[in-house]
Design a protein around this nucleic acid. Structure first.
Lengths: 197, 197, 197, 197
DNA sequence: GATGAATGAGATTTCATTCAT
DNA sequence: AATGAATGAAATCTCATTCAT
């Protein structure tokens, strides 16, 4: 596999194609039923080519999960100057969009991976650091006086984080095609009120 | 395969052996990693014998792990006459004990099963009905005036449920041997205060 | 794979067929060029069947090597009552026959396996215990007065063993079809004279 | 590929780098486990670059390991004028030092290569010509009357050669760090006595 | 001179299942 | 009731090599 090497535009394009084909396949038939062969057929590449771009079948999954995970952190960097309220709102919006873009299949796979007996480093902690991000925003908000100090930041952070995760659980399980926002919003809103008030 | 035919004691014993071996295996390596071969080796039977007792592998593992959850509902039948506060306390205590008795392995199994793409009926909803139970208790408490009506029962229920699930996540991932209570208590306590106040 | 299980005559026959096909193939195209597919085609079995009888591709090689290796030891048991000279003769004859039956390919593979960097337990020590067997015979012969005590048994044993191994080296490398005996005899004979005299 | 064309200094350097990386790899993991990918990673080149410098993988590894043996023949040129005993002693000393300098890894590589099914010209015969060298020394010694003529030179040569090879086998397999001399000396000494007397 | 992209045949292994005994 | 034999599709991964840039 290619390690830290220069990639040509062509290579980048191919890799992207593989990833998007894979995402589509995962949505279509469920992650456990997607085979290497499927991916290669869908991407129009040879199996060897797959291994030119990815370490293994597990590897691509991680790359998919990571994908915009990295962007989330990056995005948070650039909103430093906003007010705490706006930050919180942006964070949640970004998060929700992440969920929706990935889709139920991949989000559930993310959780399943996280819950695997073997353990290993937490994927969520690394690529989808919901809690630390929320924590920072709440603390800043309390410091600046924007958010109420009625409850400890730890508690509020726990409340919001757990609510998001729990709602994503329900969303994953729900048979309907409703967006994640439509699940999360109504549950998250009161928590936000609690944070602000 | 054996249909509704007379079974010899020996047959019954063998079948039981298969089931209990399977349970052990599931706990040990996770339901998705248990193969027919594993089961047969563990049970000391030939592969053919398995098919003498079961139609296929599909289902038996699922059936087995479902059995694990049946107990809790029964446990909750008998607390009707208590006060809302006591009920809530008992419910949580029972729940926490359930988690601890089952252990991280099985609880994470349960979640992973729940998150499995194929769907199927929700195992948690059916066998570990945290939310409905909590919901009932909170509603009763508000009706009887014991609990504050400052927040909607839906919201409070969601808060508590999500907190428990989230904490169990953290507990499962934690490398230490701390009891589940030690995780959950400190996070749940403020929520309860919120419910009561 | 079948572990310590009863095997039906049919199974035994199949397994034997696989082994002999494999030996033939190894002789024919060299051990590194024999694939699972080759073996299965030659034996007329499905690939799965191979794994019913053998743990892995490496596994069959070990079984092939072992094969009569076990018989050698067994055979030595049954000649206890012979004279030392006769024992020595029988031992060498058996050994030479072993080499010839296995053929150059397999014997060389045995050595190559033995010389592998990874180490692991000595295959030769375990399955083709030339040295211990020779050692015992020489000691017995000296004790009983049949063999001369002019040289230490250790030295004589080392002489004979090394000679056999060295000659097998030459034999393996030789392009002609000469039998191993024709190589070994002329080199071993003087050593035997030395032992006896 | 580069044929007999002008090479730039950069090209020469790259080629040299490929070769030395390969040598290291061979020593490290055994010639048959070195892949093109290994070589390229180790050399820090792209796979295509390899084919810019070499026609194919076949041969280059072999060629490299052969280079290892070239030295010893040269070393033996200069002892013509010594007495037979001294020659023998020098020869053995040189040989033993050769083994020790190369180390177990390479010596076993050499043997394994020698035993490789494909055959090809004997590497040992060509580059580590133990037997011819010993043979010459013994014959000279018998001719000059220095060594006893009690046994045929062929037999004595075979005895000594096989002993050295056999002991090197044992040395390679031994897990301890003892020098090769400490293995060989005690086994070789009686043979030398036999040659001289 | 050097590179990354792409190949595709081929290798080993897994596994749920059927069958004859 | 129980068993070992046999299956064969399918899965993942390896690797030397060619090619366009």
């Amino acid at each position: 596999m290619i390690m830290d090497v220069k990639r040509t535009p062509k290579g980048v394009r191919t890799k992207q194609r593989i990833i998007s084909s894979s995402i589509e396949l995962i949505h279509g038939k469920g992650i456990e039923n997607v085979t290497l062969n499927d991916i290669c057929s869908a991407s129009g590449i040879a199996q060897g080519t797959f291994y030119h771009h990815f370490k293994s079948m597990d590897g691509i999954l991680l790359e998919i999960i990571r994908g915009e995970g990295e962007e989330i952190s990056a995005l948070m960097e650039s909103i430093e100057e906003l007010s705490a309220s706006e930050k919180l709102e942006t964070l949640l919006k970004t998060l929700f969009r992440y969920y929706e873009q990935k889709g139920k299949e991949i989000v559930s796979q993310l959780y399943r991976l996280e819950l695997k007996p073997e353990g290993g480093p937490s994927i969520i902690e690394e690529y989808l650091p919901i809690r630390p991000l929320i924590d920072r925003v709440i603390r800043k908000g309390q410091e600046s006086g924007e958010f109420s100090k009625g409850e400890s930041p730890d508690f509020l952070c726990s409340l919001l984080t757990s609510q998001i995760i729990f709602q994503s659980f329900l969303w994953i399980r729900s048979p309907c095609d409703a967006s994640f926002s439509s699940f999360a919003d109504k549950a998250v809103e009161p928590v936000i009120k609690l944070i602000k008030s």
